[in-house]
Design a binder for these strands. Structure first.
Lengths: 260, 260
DNA sequence: TATTAACTTTGATTCAGATCAATCAGAGTA
DNA sequence: TACTCTGATTGATCTGAATCAAAGTTAATA
C-alpha cells in the first residue's frame, strides 16, 4: 500500500516530469500516505508538507454500495481517493439519473459542491474504498501560504472541466459502439497510469451504470460489447475485459462515418 | 453601458444579496467598468479594487464570427465577457464538433485552458462582443493578497462543473423536445437575470449550433420548435422567440415518460 | 435593388437504439 | 444442493431521430 502511483486527477501532478522527488523522509502514517499523493510533485519543502499534513489528516472508509456524500447535503470537504472505485451521479426530481463519472485512486471528489456549498451529486462506492477528507476552508487557507498548491488545485478543477467537455462530445456526437470504445480506452489509460495492465482489467460497474454514463440503455451496451468481441477487438467475460487490439479499438472510437 | 447587471457566471456575485456596494467612486473607464462586474460584491476595499484594476486592464473587441481564442493556442488569460454573445466548441481531428456552451455578459471564458495552459476549445463570437482580458498568472498572484477573490474564483470554476453535469444529464437522458425546452428555459433565465425579458428574446445562434449543443440534428431542432409552437407554448419567428406559457414549457422539460 | 448565399422549414424514408421479452449465468443464502 | 436475486445476453419489434430531399425565407453583398 501507499505506493506512489502516477495519477491523473489529483493534487499530485503538475506534469509527469516533476515526478521524482525524494520523500522517503516522510513518516508513512496513512494520512501522510495520501499526503504523498497530494503534494509530492508540487515541489513542497518540509515545512509546507507539514502544513498540508495538518489539513489532510482525516481518513474515511466507504463500503461498497455506501454513499461518500449525497446530493443536497452540506459541503465541507473534498475527498481524495486513496483506494477503491466510486461513481458520481446526478438525479432529477422525476427520477431521471445520470452517472457523471467513475473515479479511482488519486482523483478528487466534491469539486461540484464548492459553488453552492451543497453537494449537487451523489458519490457511491462501487467497491470498498478509502478516501482522505480535505476540509475545503482549510485548503483555501493554506493555498495562500503555498501558492504552488493553489496553482495545482486550479489545474485539477480545470481538468475536470476539460473531461466534462469530452464527455459532452461523446454524448452529443458519437454512436453507441464509438462511445463504448472511447469508454474502454479511457479506463485502459487510467489503469495503465496507475501501474495496472492497460489491456486486462475488471469493470467495477454494471452494464446499466455504463449505459447511464454513456447515454445508452444497458442492452445496447451489452450488444456493443458483443459486437467488439465478435470482431476480436476485445474479449468479454462478464466484468472481465481484455483488449486484444487496442489500435483497432482506437479506430472504432475515431472513424465516425457521421462527420456532420 | 456599464450598468451593473445581475450575472450568473462571473467573478462578481458570491450571492445575490451582496449586491449593493457603493462603487460610484470608481472612475468609469472601460477597464474599471468590467472591474465593477468582476469584484463588486466580493466585498473588496478601495485598495484591493486598485490591485485588481491593474490586472484587469486590457479590453478586447471580437467581431461577429471571429475567434476570441482557438484550440491549441497558448493560454495566457481568462476573458470576462463585457457585452455580446459567444459560443465555445471542441472539435476532434475527424471533424466531429460539439458546441459546449453559449456565453453572455458577465461570464468567464478560458477555464478549460488552465490545466494544460493550452486552449482546448474554440471561442467564437456570435455577435460583436467585448471582453476584458485577465492575465491568469496575475489573477493567481492577487488571489493570494485577496482571499475573498480566490474563494469567488473557485466558486466560478465549480459552477462551470455543475453546469457541465447538467448538460451531461440532458444529453444522456432527455428526448429532443425536452432538450429544447430545457435549453430555452436556461436562456430565458439568463436573459432575465441580466434585466432582459424572460419571455421574449432573439437567439444569436443557428439551428445547427443549437443542435450541436443539444446533440441533435438541425432538422430535429426545427421540428421541435414547430411542435412547441403548434402547442402554443412558444411563438417562433425565425430567431425571435416568445415564450407564451413558461409553466407548460417547464412541464415539457420535466415530464419524461421515460423515467428509466 | 438585385443577387446570392446561408439558414429554416417540412415531408418522406431509413435506421440506430429503445423497448419488450425470454433465457442464462453467477453470487449469495437458506 | 436447491433457491433466489441480480445482472448479462440475445432476439423480436417499435419508434424517435437521422438522413435525404425539396422548397421557402432571410440576410449579406454587389
Amino acid at each position: 500500500m501507499c505506493k506512489p502511483l502516477p495519477l491523473e486527477n489529483n493534487l499530485l501532478h503538475d506534469n509527469p516530469q516533476q515526478n521524482h522527488l525524494d520523500v522517503t523522509h516522510i513518516k508513512s502514517s496513512c494520512a501522510t500516505c495520501s499526503l504523498r499523493e497530494l503534494c509530492l510533485p508540487v515541489g513542497l519543502n518540509n515545512q509546507e508538507i507539514q502544513i498540508l499534513g495538518d489539513v489532510v489528516s482525516h481518513k474515511r472508509k466507504v463500503r461498497r454500495g455506501d454513499y461518500l456524500h449525497q446530493s443536497g447535503l452540506k459541503f465541507q470537504s473534498l475527498f481524495a481517493i486513496r483506494s477503491g472505485f466510486l461513481k458520481t451521479c446526478v438525479l432529477e426530481e422525476d427520477g431521471r439519473q445520470q452517472v457523471t463519472g467513475f473515479h479511482m485512486t488519486g482523483e478528487l471528489l466534491g469539486l461540484d459542491a464548492i459553488s453552492s456549498e451543497i453537494h449537487t451529486c451523489d458519490a457511491i462506492a462501487l467497491e470498498d474504498s478509502e478516501v482522505c477528507e480535505i476540509p475545503f476552508t482549510k485548503l483555501e487557507e493554506i493555498s495562500i501560504i503555498i501558492p504552488s498548491l493553489m496553482r495545482h488545485f486550479h489545474k485539477i478543477m480545470s481538468r475536470e472541466i476539460v473531461r466534462d467537455h469530452s464527455v459532452m462530445l461523446l454524448l452529443g456526437s458519437m454512436k453507441a459502439e464509438e462511445r463504448l470504445a472511447s469508454f474502454l480506452l479511457n479506463l485502459s489509460r487510467r489503469f495503465s497510469m496507475r501501474g495496472y495492465s492497460e489491456s486486462d482489467f475488471n469493470l467495477r460497474m454494471t452494464r446499466e451504470e455504463i449505459g447511464s454514463y454513456l447515454g445508452l440503455k444497458l442492452e445496447t451496451v451489452s450488444r456493443a460489447f458483443s459486437k467488439l468481441q465478435d470482431e476480436n477487438i476485445i474479449t468479454v467475460d462478464n466484468k472481465h475485459i481484455q483488449i486484444n487490439d487496442i489500435n483497432r479499438l482506437r479506430i472504432k472510437m475515431g472513424n465516425s462515418s457521421c462527420i456532420t
